[in-house]
Design a protein around this nucleic acid. Structure first.
Length: 482
RNA sequence: GCCGCGUUCGUCUAGGGGUCUAGGACGCCGGCCUUUCACGCCGGUAACACGGGUUCAAAUCCCGUACGCGGUACCA
C-alpha cells in the first residue's frame, strides 16, 4: 500500500484486557489513516509499572487481529521509529527533559508524598502560587540540588507552567477549545521511579514518531493544553488533534466493567468474541457510535468504512451503548455471508460432528438467526432428532387423527422417488385431500414430529434438508412416542 | 469546588437561519405475507433540555440556567 505522510497511532496502556471503548478508538484511528492512505502505528504505553499486566499486550494484538485492523508499525511488526514500547524508550524522555531543565522550563522537585498531601489538604495546588514554597531546584541552591540527586534522593521533574497564558486550539471533532494555564498545576514529567508520565512520553513519542494526527478518547481533551505547553517548550509542532466522544453505558453512566456486568453487557473485546458476535458486526456497530455517513446506508464492511469514514462526520456528544443495535448489525452481517461461510462460523458451536447437510441447514435459517451459534442452539433438530416434543405444541397440534396421518405420510415419503420440495408438498396435499382433511392437519403434526416444536422454517424445505431416511425415521418415531 | 466539553424520538442519529406540520435506523405496537415461527413488506408510536435575546424568520446564532460526561494524580 502506498503511504503518504499521514501517520496515526493507537496508544493503549497495557493495564488489562482491551475494552470495547479502546477498540472503538483503535477503529477510528485505523479508519482515518486507511482512508487517507496513511500509516497506522501501535504504541504500547507501559509507563505505569504498578498497573502493568503482562498479558495485556497480547490481548490488544489479538483484539485488533480479530476485527481485522492491521498495523504498519508496532512492537511486534517493528518499524523505523521503534522501539514501540515506552518502557524501552526511557533514555529518550530523559534526554529531552534535560533540555527542558536547562532552558528553565522544568525543574527537579524533592517534595515528599506527605508534603504534597499537606499542600492539597490546604486547598492549594503545585503551581505558580506555591512552587516557591516547595522543595525544588527553584528554591534550593544549585549545589544542594546536585547533592541530593547524587545521594539518590527520590525526586520528580516538573513542568514550569506559565502563570497567565490562554491556550486555544482547534480540535477536529470538538472545534475550538480554550484553556487558561492558571488552572494547570506544574505537571510531573518524570516520576520518582524514573519513568515518564503520560504527558511527557506522549508528546515526545508523537513527535519522534512523526505522528500527524492524534486521535484518542475525549478524556484527554483537558490535557491538550499541557501538551501544547510541552510542544512549545520543546520547540516542536503540535500534531492535529481529534478527541472522540466517549461510549456510555445504556443508562447514561460511565461504561465501566462493573456497570456493564450489572447490565449483562460484555465489556472486553474478547467477551464479544466469546459471546458469539461477528467481528464485522462489532466494527459496524462501533463505527456508528458517534459517526454516521450522512446517507441511508447502515450496513458497512470494514473496507467500505475505510472509504467512507471522515473525522468531520464524527459527532461531539457521548453515545450510549445499545445491545439491540449490535444484535441487529450482527444479523445483517450474517446474511451477507455465503451459506458456506455461515456454516463455517457456526461449526464451533456444534457438539456433533459436522453433518453433510450443514451448508444447506445454514442456508435454511440464515435470515432467521441473530448469532451464528443460533444455528446450533435454536435449531438443534437440524442436526439431531428431537429428544422430546414441546408439550404445548403437542396439546395444540397433535390431534386424534395425527398418528394415522403422519404414519401414512411417512409411508408415502419412503416411496418417493424425487426429494424435491414440490414433491414433498404434493405428496402431503394429496394425502390430506384423500383423507378429506385440511393440509394443516398434516403440516403441523409433521413439523412437530420432525422438529419437536411448532415453529421453524417451512416444513417442506426442512424435510428436504433433513433427507429422506432421517425424515421417515423421525416420523415413525413420533408416532410411536406420542 | 474549579476547569473543559456536551444536550434532536427510549437508543444511535440527519439537519447547521426559511425547503422542518423535524428525516432515517434500532426497539416497541399494528397490518400484510405464511395453514407455524421468523424474515420481508406496509403502517403507527415517539424528540429540537429550559429561559432570555438577535432576526421578517431559530432545532439551527448569542447569553444564562439545568442536567450529563470528562478533567482536576509521581493513572493512563
Amino acid at each position: 500500500m502506498e503511504h503518504n505522510t499521514i501517520r496515526v497511532r493507537f496508544a493503549p496502556s497495557p493495564t488489562g484486557l482491551l475494552h470495547i471503548g479502546g477498540l472503538r478508538t483503535a477503529l477510528f484511528c485505523y479508519l482515518f489513516a486507511r482512508g487517507q492512505g496513511g500509516t497506522v502505528v501501535l504504541r504500547i504505553e507501559d509507563t505505569d509499572r504498578s498497573r502493568f499486566v503482562p498479558e495485556a499486550e497480547a490481548d490488544i494484538a489479538a483484539a485488533l487481529a480479530w476485527i481485522g485492523l492491521s498495523v504498519d508499525e508496532g512492537p511486534t511488526v517493528g518499524g523505523p521509529f521503534g522501539p514501540y514500547r515506552q518502557s524501552e524508550r526511557k533514555a529518550l524522555y530523559h534526554r529531552h527533559v534535560k533540555r527542558l531543565i536547562a532552558q528553565g522550563d522544568a525543574y527537579y522537585a524533592f517534595d515528599t508524598p506527605a508534603q504534597l498531601t499537606e499542600l492539597r489538604s490546604a486547598g492549594a495546588a503545585y503551581n505558580v502560587a506555591t512552587r516557591m514554597d516547595m522543595t525544588n531546584s527553584l528554591t534550593l541552591p544549585a549545589d544542594e540540588v546536585s547533592g541530593r540527586i547524587a545521594d539518590g534522593q527520590a525526586h520528580t521533574v516538573r513542568l514550569r507552567v506559565p502563570a497567565d497564558r490562554t491556550i486555544r486550539f482547534e480540535d477536529m471533532v470538538k472545534g475550538s477549545v480554550t484553556v487558561e494555564s492558571s488552572g494547570i498545576d506544574d505537571q510531573v514529567l518524570i516520576k520518582s521511579d524514573g519513568m515518564p508520565t503520560y504527558h511527557l512520553a506522549n508528546v515526545v513519542d508523537d513527535h519522534l514518531m512523526q505522528i500527524t494526527h492524534v486521535i484518542r478518547g475525549d478524556e484527554w481533551l483537558p490535557s491538550v493544553a499541557k501538551h501544547i505547553l510541552l510542544y512549545e517548550a520543546l520547540g516542536w509542532h503540535c500534531p492535529a488533534m481529534a478527541h472522540l466522544p466517549l461510549i456510555l453505558s445504556p443508562n447514561g453512566g460511565k461504561l465501566s466493567k462493573r456497570s456493564a456486568q450489572r447490565l449483562g453487557l460484555p465489556v472486553n473485546v474478547r467477551d464479544y468474541q466469546s459471546a458469539g458476535y461477528e467481528p464485522e458486526a462489532v466494527v459496524n456497530f462501533l463505527a456508528f457510535l458517534g459517526w454516521n455517513p450522512g446517507t441511508r446506508q447502515e450496513v458497512f464492511s470494514l473496507a467500505e468504512l475505510e472509504k467512507t469514514f471522515t473525522l468531520e462526520r464524527v459527532g461531539s456528544a457521548p453515545a450510549r451503548f445499545d445491545l439491540d443495535k449490535l444484535q441487529w448489525f450482527n444479523a445483517q452481517h450474517l446474511r451477507r455471508l455465503s451459506a458456506q461461510e455461515l456454516w463455517d462460523r457456526a461449526c464451533p458451536y456444534l457438539v456433533e460432528v459436522a453433518p453433510d447437510h450443514g451448508v444447506a441447514a445454514a442456508a435454511l435459517v440464515q435470515d432467521r438467526i441473530i448469532l451464528a451459534r443460533d444455528l446450533a442452539e435454536t435449531y438443534p433438530y437440524l442436526f439431531t432428532p428431537p429428544d422430546d416434543y414441546d408439550p404445548r405444541g403437542v396439546r395444540r397440534r397433535w390431534k386424534q387423527d395425527s398418528p394415522a396421518l403422519v404414519e401414512a405420510y411417512a409411508e408415502r415419503l419412503s416411496q418417493l422417488a424425487s426429494w424435491e420440495e414440490s414433491a414433498l408438498e404434493t405428496a402431503l396435499r394429496s394425502l390430506a385431500a384423500e383423507h378429506k382433511v385440511g393440509a394443516g392437519c398434516l403440516i403441523h403434526p409433521a413439523r412437530l414430529a420432525v422438529s419437536g416444536t411448532t415453529a421453524g422454517p417451512s416444513l417442506f424445505a426442512l424435510l428436504r434438508v433433513l433427507g429422506q431416511t432421517e425424515v421417515v425415521e423421525r416420523l415413525h418415531r413420533a408416532v410411536a412416542v406420542l
